[in-house]
Structure formats: structure tokens, C-alpha cells
């Protein structure tokens, strides 16, 4: 199986400075927020690659750079071997773009309330100039709604049904890669189960590849074939779900797994993790996790560890594999 997405040294810096005049009067320097810093990974065709991390870890920014909603500050994103930021052949750009679709978190905000469901679903196909006869009806039935729903408006549906409409729209241009940014975070557990099952079925049926972005470890473990853990814009660990949950190598991953509530953890006394995610405008030197890390040594504060192969995982830590707890 081939590689569909290849991300190399991806970096994104946002300029969060005050306006020019304020900077001159108040003698303030420019302020830069590094949302994503030197992230590299590859996604194999017909698999689910999951990015997990807390708020501010850069997972959505990476998703946006992969679909091309944001240009990278540094590094490259190659989809099917094409770098959309530098490619000049319009035909190639169009072909690759139609292979990518996105599903967003909030199904109430991502559907136009003035459009009929049929028009919403057909829009990507219309944009590609494809035939749309019966397309919306067929897709609605594939996602478990009824063909007669094409004439309804989004407000007539519940949250779970709306997310199904979003999935149907994403499928309309027959994509190969779907970037799902927290697709079930706004849904109830029983509805989440329906949407996750649907996504798994469609993946097998159409040979789709998912980049699955979520903060929910149980959902990630259920869906993913490969998991990347992000902390402050850096990829700290990458492994298969079995390895990551059995033997987490990075101290941050260990902390995250320990803190996640468990259904079988009756009366479990968790030693809550110390501190919070640092300010991304002034990240700590060296390893970004060292101020909170129970294993930190002097070297962690001065040198940034690179992502290296350690046993079956890729880890960015000088003391990978050791356990504090």
C-alpha cells in the first residue's frame, strides 16, 4: 500500500503582534506564536491516522495545512506526491484537491441553513463539474438517511443526522482522503457510536483514508491504525494503538493516559498531573514538556529531542521508555 500523505518538517507560525502603531508607541517587539513546530509523519492509504493532543497542541492547524486551508510557514505537505503549495500545473492541482475532503466538529455551523440538503451534498460534485443526477439521494441512503430528505433543510435534522449529512457531502466528490476534525465531539455517546460505525463502514467500502483529529483517547483508540501524540505543536510520540496504550514511551503520553477517566476505574485515586500547557508564544527551551516532566534531566532544558525510532514507536525524548509512575 502506498503513502497518500507525506508531511515533512511542517511548521506554522502565526503573527500575534499588536498593530504596527501600538508597537511603535509602546515599544513592543513582534510576537510570534508557533502553533506547529517541525512535525513529520506519513499516512498509508486506506488507514486511519489519528492526531491526539490537548487544546493548543496544534492538531487542527495541521489538519488545515493538509487540506490546504492554511499555507505552511516551513516544511512541506505532499498528497499523492504533489506539493499543493508549489505545484503550478492547474490540472494536477484540481485533481489532487478533489481527492481531499474535510468533516468539521460542529454540524450546526458547517451546514448552510438556507440551502436544501440535496444542494449541500451535491456542491462538491458541482464544483468539479461532475454529473449530479440522483447523487444526493444515493449518498443519503449510504449514510443511513432517506432519499426523500434531499428537499429538507438542515434545521429539520438532529445533531447526529446533520453529521451524517456532512459525511455524505464529503463523499460527493469521491475523495481518497478525508480530514475529520473532532467529528464526534459535539455528539452524545449513542449517536457517536452510530457515526463512528458509519465512518468505519465507508472506509472499507470506498477505500478511504482518514486523518482523524480528536482529544478523546477512547475514540482514538477505537478508530486509529496509527496515532500521533502532539504537545505544544510538536509530535512527541507516534505508534500503533496497541503499542501506545500498552507501553507509552513518552512521559507526556504516560501522563495523558493516566489522567484519562476509565470506565473500570471505580474509586480510582488519580494523582492529577502537575501544571498546564505552557504559553506557546514563549515555549520552554529544549523539550517543551520538561517543566512538567517527572523524568526531566538537565539536558532536557537545553536540547530539543528529535523524533527517533525506539522499539516499535517513534519518540522524541531522551529518557523514552522509562516510567515515572
Amino acid at each position: 500500500m502506498g503513502i497518500i500523505v507525506s508531511v515533512k518538517n511542517l511548521t506554522r507560525v502565526f503573527d500575534v503582534s499588536k498593530p504596527w502603531l501600538n508597537r511603535v508607541i509602546e515599544r513592543l517587539p513582534k510576537r510570534k506564536l508557533t502553533a506547529v513546530s517541525d512535525v513529520s509523519f506519513e499516512i498509508t492509504e486506506n488507514t486511519v491516522y489519528a492526531l491526539v493532543g490537548e487544546s493548543g497542541s496544534g492538531k487542527s492547524t495541521i489538519g488545515k495545512m493538509i487540506v490546504g486551508l492554511l499555507p505552511p510557514s516551513d516544511g512541506t505537505v505532499e498528497i499523492e506526491g504533489v506539493n499543493l503549495a508549489t505545484e503550478t500545473d492547474a490540472g494536477v492541482i484540481e485533481r489532487v484537491r478533489s481527492d481531499i475532503q474535510m468533516i468539521f466538529q460542529d454540524p450546526y455551523a458547517s451546514l448552510n441553513p438556507r440551502w436544501k440538503v440535496g444542494d449541500i451534498i451535491e456542491e462538491p460534485a458541482v464544483a468539479n463539474g461532475d454529473a449530479t443526477d440522483g447523487l444526493a439521494e444515493k449518498l443519503l441512503e449510504q449514510v443511513g438517511l432517506s432519499a426523500s430528505d434531499v428537499r429538507k433543510f438542515p434545521h429539520e435534522f438532529s445533531g447526529g443526522q446533520r453529521q451524517r449529512i456532512c459525511v455524505a457531502r464529503a463523499l460527493a466528490s469521491e475523495p481518497k482522503l478525508i480530514v475529520c476534525d473532532e467529528p464526534t465531539s459535539a455528539l452524545d455517546v449513542s449517536v457517536q457510536a452510530q457515526v463512528l460505525n458509519l465512518m468505519s463502514d465507508l472506509k472499507d467500502e470506498f477505500g478511504l483514508t482518514y486523518l482523524f483529529i480528536s482529544h478523546d483517547l477512547t475514540v482514538i483508540q477505537h478508530m486509529a491504525d496509527r496515532i500521533g501524540v502532539l504537545y505544544l505543536g510538536r509530535l512527541v510520540e507516534e505508534a500503533s494503538p496497541a503499542d501506545l496504550f500498552e507501553t507509552p514511551q513518552h512521559p507526556y503520553t504516560q501522563m495523558l493516559l493516566e489522567a484519562a477517566p476509565r470506565m473500570d476505574g471505580f474509586g480510582r485515586e488519580v494523582t492529577p498531573p502537575e501544571g498546564e500547557i505552557p504559553d506557546p508564544i514563549n515555549p520552554p527551551t529544549g523539550c517543551a514538556f520538561h517543566p512538567r516532566c517527572p523524568l526531566a534531566i538537565d539536558r532536557c532544558a537545553t536540547e530539543r529531542p528529535v523524533l527517533e525510532q525506539k522499539e516499535k514507536a517513534r519518540v522524541a525524548c531522551f529518557r523514552a521508555g522509562e516510567r515515572a509512575i
Binding site: 477512547t218 476509565r262 473500570d264
Partner: peptide
């Protein structure tokens, strides 16, 4: 409700749907 919650211990089986 319990069946539709993704669980660490149960691996990649299909989630139960209500």
C-alpha cells in the same frame, strides 16, 4: 449506553448501536 461507549479493553470491535 455502555455498549456504545468505545472502551480500551474491548479493542476494535464494532460499537453497539441503540
Amino acid at each position: 449506553l455502555m455498549g456504545s461507549t468505545p472502551l480500551a479493553s474491548k479493542g476494535k470491535r464494532r460499537l453497539h448501536q441503540i
